[in-house]
């Protein structure tokens, strides 16, 4: 999975993070390094859609958290992915 939108939502599902923390987290759990332009492209889209929102910040780093709508979207996407994974596993076993 390399869709930046899903990766950012997955990262924020754990709790609020700022941009660099998201980059590090995504690299850790998905082994994908999102470039700064790609990450902020995804953050911009997600905020426009109301799936993430900025939280209180103490410095220039702006943390974001996932919204209820964002969580629902992530759950639906993961359910879809889960179906694909199960189908692929079944077919590989029978191949």
């Amino acid at each position: 999975m390399s869709d930046p939108t899903l990766l950012v939502l997955t990262s924020l599902a754990e709790g609020p993070k700022h941009g660099y923390a998201m980059m590090e987290d995504i690299q850790h759990f998905a082994n994908v390094r999102l470039g700064p332009g790609t990450l902020y492209g995804a953050i911009t889209r997600l905020e426009e859609r109301g799936w993430i929102r900025p939280t209180q910040s103490q410095d220039r780093r702006q943390p974001y958290c996932i919204t209820a709508a964002g969580r629902r979207y992530l759950e639906e996407e993961l359910a879809g992915l889960d179906q694909v994974v199960k189908a692929a596993s079944r077919r590989l076993k029978h191949a």
Binding site: G19, Y20, P36, L39, R61
Partner: peptide, 18 residues
């Protein structure tokens, strides 16, 4: 976004791909 984007760029190890 410019302020927080600049903060991210300050934190990250920037290479040519960035």
């Amino acid at each position: 976004y410019a302020v927080e984007f600049a903060a991210l760029l300050d934190d990250a190890n920037r290479d040519w791909s960035d």
